[in-house]
Design a binder for these strands. Structure first.
Lengths: 356, 356
DNA sequence: AGACGCGCTCGAATCGATTCGACACAGGCT
DNA sequence: AGCCTGTGTCGAATCGATTCGAGCGCGTCT
C-alpha cells in the first residue's frame, strides 16, 4: 500500500495525495476529504524510508549512552526514559547507540549513515572523541555535560561545582567543622569526567572558604563500595560529622555502614549531596540534597536539539542548571559525642549538646 | 558525498561501486581496490535511508519498553542495554519505543511507517493489544513473556511458575513450615501480567504440595513499599520463617525492615526468590535466588528476531528459561524462637536450635 | 473581449541507493 | 575462422515518497 495506490483509488495524482496530507499546498475540500477517506479505509501510512530520502531528514535522533559493561545508574536510566518521552512530543523517534570499545562501530554507522537528524550525547568528558567526531560530521548535537572548550557546541549541564559548594556551605552553616566528599569512581576523575572534577573543585574551594577540615575520596558506583568507603573513611577520620556525596549509587551502602557503625543520621552524622530525587527519598532518613532535575534536563536537551536541527546556523546555546537544595531530614547541627549520650539518637537531643 | 560521486572519481558506474561494496557480483581486483581507495579518501558511507528504501529493510529493530511514568526496574534497564549490545553484533540499530497512553502514537508511527524490520516487545500481558497489533501488521516480533495463546508467535520467557516453585521447595527442604510470597504490584496481577500470575500459581501449588502454611501478598515496585509490606506481613503472621520474593525492587526495603525488626537473616528469617543477579549480590546477606539471566534472555530474543526477519515463514519458536537457584547465604533451616535467645543472631546459632 | 490572477491539479524530476538484463571482450575450444 | 563461456562492467528500472514548474478552468477587472 503506497501513495500511488491511494492516488489511483482516489482518482488523483500522487502529488495531490502528498499535498492533501502535508497541507503544503491547498487542496479543495472535496478532494481532500475523498483522499482522506481512501487513506483511512486502506490504513495507509507513508513509508518512513522513502520519506526520509525525499525530505533529507529522518525524524529520528540518536541518544548515545555511556559505554556498556558499566551499569547505567538509575539517574541515567531516568534520563533515557525522559528523552524518549520528550522526543515523542516532537514526533521524533529515538535510536539508542552505545559507545566505547566495540560499540564504536554502531556509533559510526549511525553518524556517517545519516540515520538521524541529531544526537544527544550523554556523559561527556572534558576531552571527548565522540564530541569531536560529531563536530567534524556537522550533525547537530547536544551534549549532556560540557567539553574542555565550553564555549563551543550546545550543552546542558549541572553546576556541580556550585551545587557541591552549596552542600558544603549548608553543613558549615549548621556548624560542622570536619567533612568529607564521597565522589564518583577514581577512573572517572582520571579520565577527565567533568562532574567528578567539578565536584572535587567545588568541595575543595568551599571547604577552604569556610576553613573546614576536608577529606575527599572516590568511590565505585555501587552499594558495596559505598559501604566500604564510609567505613574506611570514618575509621581514618573519626572527627568527621558531615558527608557530601556526588555518588548516588553508593548511597544504599553508605546507609548500611552507618547503621552498622551505630552512627545516627542526622544525630551524629549529617549527609547531603547531589543525587536523583528518587534516591534522596529512598534514603533513611530522607536525604537533604540538591535533586538532579532529570526530566528537566532531558526536556531542555531535546528542545535545544530540535532548535538546532531546524536552524543549524543559529546560536550555540548552553544551559547550566543549579537546582536548589531540598531540605529533608538527613542534616542537623553536629553533636559533641563526649557530652552527649550516643545511645540517644533522638531528633531533638542534639539541640542541648551544641557547644556553640 | 554519494555513490555517484564515488563512481565518477573512480571512473566506473554506480552499480560497479555498489557491487564492489556488497560483493554480490564479482568485481576485478584492480577496480575494487581503486574504488575502495576513493571511498576511503572521501570518507564515504552509503546513506541509510536510500539503502533502506532500495533494499526494503531498515537494519533497525524496535524495542518496545513498558509504559513510561512507571519507573523501569534495573532488570529491565539491564535488558535494554543487553538488547542494544546483542543487536550491535548483528549490525542492527535499536529504536526505543515507549508504549501505553499518549505514547501509542510513537508505537503506531514505528509500526505502520515500516521504520523497523522487527520488534522486541517487553513485559507482555496475557491479553496484549500491542502483540495483537503487531500480529495484524505482519511485522516480525519476539515477545518477552507470552500471551494467553502461548502457541502462537515467538517468545522468550522465564518459567516463573517453576522457579518460584523451586524456591518454595528449597525452603521446605530446609524445614520451613510457614512461608510468604512477596509478589509484584496488585495491578500487575489484575491486568493479567504473566509473571505475577505464574509466580502466584507456582507458589500456591508448591506450598500445597508440601503442606506449608502459605501467604501471598502483592507489593508495589519500590523500596518503601517493600519495607511496609514485610512489616505488615510479619505482624499479621508471626509464624512465618521463610520469604520468597518475585519483586526485586522491594528488596532494599525488605532488608531495612527486617533489620529494624531485629530479625536476623538467615538466622530467623530465610529469604529467597527470583531477582536480578545484581540485586541478589547487593542484598545483605547475599541472596540465595534464581538469578534472572538478563543478557541471556536479550541474546536469545535478538537471535530469535533475526532468524524470524530472515525467514518470516519459518517456525515460531518459544524459549522458556529455568535458571538454577544460586546458593548464597540468605537461607538456612528455621529457628524455634522460644528455644533460642533472639539477641544472639550469630550465623552458627541456629544449628543448635533445630527441633528436628 | 482579452488580459490577468487565483485556485487546484498534474507530470516529472529528485533523493541515493540496489539489482537485473545486456553487452563487450578475452581466452579456449573445435 | 567461428563459436562458446565466462568475467567484468554498464545503463536503466526500481523502491516510495516530496516538491517544483506548468497548465487548466474560471471569475474579475479594465
Amino acid at each position: 500500500m503506497n501513495i500511488g495506490e491511494i492516488a489511483k483509488r482516489a482518482g488523483v495524482s500522487r502529488s495531490t495525495v502528498s499535498y492533501a496530507l502535508s497541507g503544503k499546498r491547498t487542496v479543495s475540500e472535496a478532494t481532500r476529504r475523498r483522499i482522506l477517506r481512501v487513506i483511512d479505509e486502506a490504513g495507509y501510512r507513508p513509508n518512513a524510508s522513502a520519506r526520509a530520502l525525499a525530505e533529507g531528514r529522518t525524524r529520528t535522533i540518536a541518544l548515545v549512552i555511556p559505554p556498556a559493561g558499566r551499569r547505567l545508574t538509575p539517574i541515567q536510566l531516568g534520563f533515557v526514559a525522559s528523552v524518549v518521552a520528550a522526543a515523542g512530543l516532537h514526533e521524533l523517534d529515538v535510536l539508542l547507540s552505545p559507545s566505547g570499545g566495540e560499540h564504536d562501530r554502531s556509533f559510526e554507522r549511525i553518524i556517517s549513515g545519516r540515520r538521524v537528524d541529531g544526537v544527544i550525547l550523554m556523559e561527556v568528558r572534558l576531552q571527548d572523541a565522540r564530541a569531536a567526531r560529531l563536530r567534524e560530521s556537522g550533525l547537530p548535537f547536544v551534549a549532556i555535560g560540557h567539553t574542555a572548550d565550553a564555549g563551543t557546541g550546545c550543552w546542558v549541564d549541572l553546576d556541580y561545582e556550585g551545587l557541591i559548594g552549596n552542600c558544603v556551605h549548608h553543613l558549615a552553616d549548621l556548624g560542622h567543622r570536619a567533612i568529607a566528599l564521597i565522589n564518583r569512581p577514581q577512573e572517572f576523575l582520571d579520565s577527565g569526567y567533568g562532574p567528578a572534577r567539578r565536584a572535587l573543585d567545588g568541595f575543595t574551594a568551599a571547604a577552604a572558604a569556610r576553613s573546614l577540615t576536608a577529606t575527599a575520596i572516590c568511590c565505585p558506583d555501587d552499594a558495596m563500595a559505598g559501604e566500604a568507603c564510609v567505613e574506611n573513611l570514618l575509621a581514618a577520620h573519626p572527627a568527621i560529622t558531615g558527608i557530601v556525596t556526588a555518588n548516588e549509587a553508593a548511597l544504599p551502602g553508605m546507609e548500611r555502614s552507618l547503621r552498622r557503625l551505630g552512627r545516627a543520621v542526622p544525630g551524629q552524622i549529617s549527609i547531603t549531596g547531589v543525587v536523583g530525587r528518587h534516591w534522596a527519598e529512598e534514603f533513611h532518613p530522607p536525604l537533604t540534597a540538591a535533586d538532579v532535575p532529570i526530566s528537566d534536563m532531558a526536556d531542555r536537551a531535546v528542545g535545544l536539539l530540535v532548535e538546532r536541527i531546524s536552524s543549524p546556523a543559529g546560536p550555540e546555546r548552553h544551559i547550566l542548571l543549579t537546582p536548589p537544595i531540598s531540605l529533608r531530614s538527613s542534616t542537623a547541627p553536629p553533636v559533641q559525642r563526649a557530652e552527649c549520650d550516643p545511645a540517644l539518637p533522638s531528633q531533638g537531643s542534639h539541640a542541648e549538646c551544641l557547644t556553640s
